[in-house]
Structures are given as C-alpha cells and as structure tokens.
Design a protein around this nucleic acid. Structure first.
Length: 291
DNA sequence: CACTTGACCTGTCCGC
DNA sequence: TGCGGACAGGTCAAGT
C-alpha cells in the first residue's frame, strides 16, 4: 500500500476537496458488499457532511456530521480519487485519462456529493477496507489501541524510538520496522530507504543494534518520509493521490527497486534479497550483513 | 509470549 | 505469442 507518506498525501488532497460537502448517494460492488461496514449506511452516511479528514498510521478517517466516521485502509492497491463536477461534465480536465475512465473494473465504492462531484474507492487486489463506525469509538478499536506512535510527531524523540523496539527483541530490524505496533506508518519502501541511510543491514537482529544506529534509523526514517510527503509519495504502479496523479519519490529513492544500479554513496552494485518475507534492497558494501 | 509463514486477490512481468 | 511461476506499497490468522 501506500505507506505513511502516500496516505498523508491522499489525506491532504481529500481535505482540500471534500470537507464541507454532503454525501447524497453511495454505491458499492455487490459481490463482496460495502467493505466491512457493520451498520446502517442510509442513516449515518447519506445526508452527512464531511467535517474532517484525518490520518493515523496508514488509516484514513473521514469524520461526518452524523457523528460517524469512515475508516479506510488502502492496503496494497487502494486508491481514493475525487472527481469534481467540472471534471465530470467537461469544464475541468478533459485530458486526464484516469479520471475520465472512472469508474473502472477496480472501483468498489462510489460516493456522490450533492453538487455532483464523486469520490471513488478503487482497489484492484481487494485487500483494502472501508468501515463506518461512531467517531467516538475510533480510539477503542483494536488497531488504534495497539498501533505505535506517529514517527513524524514533533514530540516523538530518538530515545522513544529506540524504546519502542524492546517489544521485538529477537526479530530482524526490518521486520520490527514494518511492525505497526512498534512505530506507525513505515512500510517496505521507507524501511529499505531508512536502513540504507543509517547503514544498517535489514537482517541484523534488533538486539544487536547500537544506540547510535537507532538514532540514525530514527533520523533517516523521518527524513525519508518527510521528503516523500514533499514529493507526493511513491508510485510504483497503483498508487495515486486524490487527484488521480502519481507521486515522484521513486525518482529520489536510493536503493528501493534499484537493484543492479550503483549505490549513490559508495558505487557498489545494489542487490535485492528477501528479509522478513519481503523484497529487500541493500548496498552490500554500506550495509554489513550479520555473521 | 515472540516469531514466521501462508492467505487474502488480481494483474504484470520474466523466463521457457 | 503462450503459459507457468514469482512477485507487488499490507495485514491477519494460523502455525511453530
């Protein structure tokens, strides 16, 4: 999925476009149903106004005037794409191929607003979900109870970062970085990028990481995700923002999906391996493998 | 408990 | 150009 920077980019774009709009209709793919929605859509979704768009970890929260919120996880291939009334009826961006083509075979949910604008939830692999729950109950959900701190929170320190890893003492540092209960929002791209930046091999065990290395990982993880948000996220294949546009962070990636190319720091050839069950990119010279 | 693996789906790419 | 297998931004439920 989209990782923290991609979800944050979607959040920013959606906030600009849908806050203040009122939902007038909803439709969804009938085969699997409105994904995971446990309660009555008619009473708490239709007629409700959007009052805020928030993010926690990789989960988006769209708060409604009905005191309910839509919680959305994009998982690997989810998209939330807004199409304005002008886009639909010809006065907007007639050459935007993605928007022109919507809805398409991956569209699972469509929300219609009172002015005729639309919000599409597309998800090719169908791993993503959307739930409608009372806003006040969000903090009590199992996910929110267990998820780790936001890494870009200005109050989140290097010391706190290191301490979070005490819960995963005997696993690899890559697996721990991907564990959302340790620190929120890091996924496969930014784990590899941060490990390269900190010169830490992904197969190193958490217990072997020094204080200086934890400090470097903290700094690198924050820097790489901050840069990615500035660049509108990473687009390998499916990810797009709320306008249906791709992000450009991949142009700035140092190791992710750059196997066979030179390490920008030392010139060694970047390798792709498998760690924690995930494709993993390293510089074999900068990142020393454990024995 | 901590940790690893497979499953969830569909599409694409790569080697034969 | 066809076909099988591996793989893809994430998380769970199982298993050890």
């Amino acid at each position: 999925m989209p990782e923290l920077p991609e979800v944050e980019t979607v959040r920013i774009g959606l906030a600009d476009r849908i806050i203040g709009r009122t939902i007038s209709a909803e439709s969804h793919d009938t085969e699997k149903g409105f994904p995971n929605t446990p309660i009555d859509v008619a009473n708490f979704l239709i007629g409700a106004k959007i009052i805020a768009v928030r993010r926690r970890a990789k989960v988006l929260m769209i708060d409604l005037s009905s005191q309910y919120s839509l919680l959305i996880h994009l998982k690997m291939t989810g998209q939330l794409v807004f199409v304005s009334a002008d886009d639909r009826f010809g006065a907007g961006h007639p050459n935007d191929s993605l928007i022109e083509a919507l809805p398409d075979s991956s569209t699972r949910v469509t929300l219609t607003f009172e002015d005729g604008s639309l919000l599409f939830f597309n998800d090719q692999r169908k791993f993503g979900w959307m739930k409608l729950i009372p806003t006040a109950e969000i903090p009590d959900t199992p996910f929110m109870r267990k998820v780790g701190p936001e890494p870009l929170d200005p109050h989140f320190t290097a010391v706190a970062f290191k301490q979070r890893f005490a819960r995963r003492p005997r696993t690899t540092i890559k697996a721990a970085l991907l564990d959302q209960s340790v620190v929120a929002g890091i996924g496969n791209i930014y784990a590899d990028e941060a490990l390269w930046g900190a010169k830490v091999h992904p197969s190193r065990l958490v217990g072997s990481i020094t204080d200086d290395e934890f400090t470097a990982l903290y700094t690198e993880a924050r820097a790489v995700m901050t840069l990615a948000i500035e660049k509108g996220g990473s687009s390998n294949r499916n990810y797009v923002n709320a306008e249906g546009k791709k992000g450009s962070y991949m142009d700035f990636a140092r190791v992710f999906r750059r196997e066979g190319q030179e390490c920008p720091r030392c010139g060694a050839i970047i390798e792709k391996t498998r760690v924690a069950g995930r494709g993993t990119h390293i510089c074999p010279h900068c990142q020393v493998a454990p024995e």
